[in-house]
Design a binder for these strands. Structure first.
Lengths: 140, 140
DNA sequence: TTCACACTCATACTTTCGGGTGAATTGAGT
DNA sequence: ACTCAATTCACCCGAAAGTATGAGTGTGAA
């Protein structure tokens, strides 16, 4: 946002310069007032559109891809960090053994985590866990 | 989009009117050229921002809510309707037995469908199938 | 220090999944 | 009538997933 304001100010400064140049030509070459104003109008319309896009781009990003982790659900259900890691990998379609390899723990450990996770999420299968976790914003 | 163009044209017409009025005042009350140009600049900046917002708003809506079923993928991979039904229920976190009950078929049938589905989706686990199906827009 | 808790792992057992094979039925198109 | 794809179901087997229980370790708080 600060960048936007800065760039906007810069554009304004630039405009003053251009204005002076046009004004000079206006006096010398006798261009019409309409042409002068038209140029300014086009320039500022473009500038405005650019600013408008800048302003909304962030919103677009926010709505589409940004993920807000739901800490309340995590603490209320007493879900630990390790369990969340298992959950995330689970959501990527990995098998328990693959998760175990990625986390450098044994298969049994992953089973324990996932089992506790299911209890805390009140589900009984990994597919349901993934669904519920998404609903609760525990994973993107 | 047509509306936007129309409104833009209307705004331009309005601008011409305003320009004439300002020009009149300019001649009569002896306003400076800078003030004149500044007004036009502000006006068009606002207009540009407005247009910019208009242009992006639609994108946001489209990206967020609409789901377009991908018929090409379905036919190219030779996925049948029944298999899609199984897939949909699978994505809801249901077990094979539960899917069998919902579709009034035997567990073995569901197994056959899901097995064929995995082959067609080039995956080996149901969690991966759900993921891939979403990527391919076969399910929302 | 003691206590709680997260993390780790193991063993044993049950259930669910997934692969492979084969087969009967049906409906649509040739 | 014949073919072909879709759908249905069965049986077997091994792998993966999930449940239950117990237990060792480390960390941070009381």
């Amino acid at each position: 946002m600060k960048k936007t304001i800065f760039l906007y100010g810069l554009a304004l400064a630039l405009l003053v310069l251009i204005m002076r140049m046009i004004e000079y030509r206006f006096l010398v070459r006798d261009l019409t007032l309409e042409f002068y104003v038209g140029t300014v109008a086009v320039f500022f319309t473009a500038l405005g559109i650019w600013v408008g896009l800048r302003l909304t781009r962030k919103q677009v990003v926010v709505i589409n891809s940004e993920f807000h982790f739901n800490e309340k659900e995590q603490s209320q259900r007493g879900i630990s960090k390790r369990e969340l890691e298992v959950l995330a990998l689970m959501a990527q379609g990995l098998a328990n053994q693959e998760i175990a390899d990625k986390l450098f723990v044994s298969l049994n450990t992953v089973k324990t985590h996932s089992s506790n996770l299911f209890t805390k999420l009140e589900v009984s299968r990994r597919t349901q866990a993934i669904q519920k976790a998404k609903e609760l914003s525990l994973i993107p």
